[in-house]
Amino acid sequence: MPLKGAAGWALSAPATLAVIGFLLVPIGIVIAGTFMDPRGIFAPYISYFNSGFRTTVLFRTLQIAALTTIISLVFGFMTAYVVSRAPARLRSLLIIAAVFPLLTGVVVRAFAWLIILGRNGILNNTLIALGLTNEPLEMLYTQGAVIVGMVYLFVPLMVLSLVGVLENIPRDVLQASSSLGASPVATFWQVLLPLAVPGLIVGAVLVFTGSFTAYATPQLLGGERQTVLATLLHQRAMVSFDWVGASTIAAIMTVITISVVLVMTNLARRINPMAT
């Protein structure tokens, strides 16, 4: 019935128009603007990739996001496995303990690591007190500091999304595996892990896109020495007023993020058509 459809359209119209008018159109204008450069249609991109500094920033950002994703996957999966097998009361307590940091702001969580990793920070003071080092180590403003801060940001997210996935794997399947003679290790690698792959991919996409576009953590823990795409975008726009340069970075970030999401969710769907 056409009338029913019309009612649906009318009710969703305010939200639809808001997303189109304030999100799609503004981002579309930013991206379209990069192709209208008087120097030529791809000129901003050519000058981006001709700059050694800017390509370094792009690859550094990809590297940080990839390492953060891998570390979060490994530790998140192991933790989620333990949480999903814990007794009910302990399990809800552990879930709350993972939700809490997630609801604490990114600035607060990056700031915590600033206190820990600083020149006169807790870690350096402890190392000196233990006699392990005489000079304070330079831990802040390194790639390691940024990755630690990012893993801290995203491990809870990974744990929470994987606990749901692992709980949905029927226990009968695992019991069948062990009653047919598979060792716990074999059950883990050959039964549990393959069944969890679609969930692992979804979690990995969340973490990768999140760390690829994060601003506060690399800004506070990496500084100028560890410039990433997000901090470079901000610096180009607000310090140098280089709108074309900033728009080019915005376009590159958007294209990479959307491609990763589309390719990986498609992959997850193909591996297991039952997965959401």
Partner: peptide, 9 residues
Amino acid sequence: VPEIVFGFA
């Protein structure tokens, strides 16, 4: 969409 791109747009 990356939040920072949205803010900039």
